[in-house]
Structures are given as C-alpha cells and as structure tokens.
C-alpha cells in the first residue's frame, strides 16, 4: 500500500490521494474512499493529498489507518450513491455482512478505530464501532462491565455504592 508517487489525475474517475500515518507509512487510496472522512474531504476538495505530498495523519497509526481504509473502500461506492438509496438488497446484505465481520476484532483495536473515526469524522464507522461496544455492554453485570472495559477494581467505597444501586434498581437486573 506504500505509495511512492500517486496518480494525480484531477478529472479521472479514480483520483488517488496519499495518506501518511503517524508512523510514516504511506497509503494510497481513491479520493472517493478517503472522502468518507469529513475531515479529509475538505483537504481533498482543495486538491490536497495528490502527487508526492500526502496528507499526514499524526493521530492515526498504520495498523488503525489500514483498518479504517478497509472500511472506507468497502463503503465508498454506497456512499457515492448518497447513502445507497439505489442499492439492491444484495448489496445491503453484503455491506451488513462486511460490517459484522469488520468489528469482530479485539477491543483495543475497536477503541483505536472509534477514536480514529471520531478524529477523521467518519460517521458510519464511529456509529458501527459504538454499537459494537454497546453490544459488549448489554446484558452484563456492573462488575462484568468494569472488567470488560478494563476499569480498575472498585474501591470499597465504590463497591458499597454499586451494591446500594443494585439493591435500589433490583428490577433492572432481573
């Protein structure tokens, strides 16, 4: 995916742009895919990212960016159709299958992804990951949630508050 020199065709159907991760890996992608990011879209509309320039993304490492772009490339055609009103049921099912598979990953990667999606303003991706994390929370006890999300063990005081709350809202635990 390293891009020594990207195509700089302004009018071509597949204008390419180069993105540079925090660890200096260069990724060459179609402008249409990168434009799923509201942040990048402005730069790209201004003609940035072409040629040898590249757009530096100091907050996103290469592993995360690679994953983000995988999402963007997959979703770009549907996004180009304005949220895919014309998409066939098959297309939609395929995207859904892709999405489900896509977030079936380690939690730390999910966290990196949601932060990158937030920074780059990729609404669909942020929403997808947030929903996945919400699903991880659903149906769990407060302690299980704390463990799942990597919170430190509660202090005795916190533990007492948790117990009091669980007593008060016992119905929510049934």
């Amino acid at each position: 995916m390293a891009a020594p020199e990207s195509g700089d065709g302004n009018n071509g159907a597949a204008r390419m742009v180069t993105l540079i991760s925090s660890d200096n890996t260069r990724f060459e992608v179609e402008a249409a895919a990168a434009s799923l990011s509201q942040t990048l879209q402005l730069t790209i509309l201004d003609g940035g990212g072409g040629g040898g320039d590249g757009i530096p993304l100091p907050n996103v490492d290469s592993a995360t960016l690679s994953k983000v772009l995988e999402y963007c490339i997959k979703h770009a055609p549907a996004a180009a159709n304005g949220g895919a009103p014309n998409a066939t049921a098959v297309d939609r099912a395929e995207l859904e299958r892709f999405d489900n598979e896509f977030v079936n990953i380690d939690q730390s990667v999910l966290y990196s992804l949601i932060m990158a999606a937030h920074n780059l303003e990729i609404e669909g991706l942020q929403s997808l990951v947030a929903k996945k994390v919400a699903d991880m929370i659903k149906g769990k006890s407060p302690m299980e949630i704390r463990r799942t999300l990597g919170f430190p063990d509660p202090t005795p005081e916190e533990q007492a508050e948790m117990n009091a709350h669980m007593l008060e809202y016992g119905w929510a635990y049934e």
């Binding site: 937030h118 942020q126 947030a130 919400a134 929370i137 006890s141 669980m166 809202y169």
Partner: peptide, 27 residues
C-alpha cells in the same frame, strides 16, 4: 477505561433503557 469519555457517552446512548439503568451501578 481507555476510551475518551465523550466517545463512551456515544456508546451509552446506544444502550437500551433497561441495560442503562443497570449499568448506572458501574461507576
């Protein structure tokens, strides 16, 4: 955890009500 709180809020907004009542005990 490791998630910035505004992003965690975005997650919590997606949790249905009954789960939300339960996870108020979390912290």
């Amino acid at each position: 955890g490791e998630l910035p709180f505004d992003l965690m809020l975005d997650v919590l907004l997606r949790v249905p009500g009954k789960d939300l009542c339960r996870l108020r005990a979390v912290c």
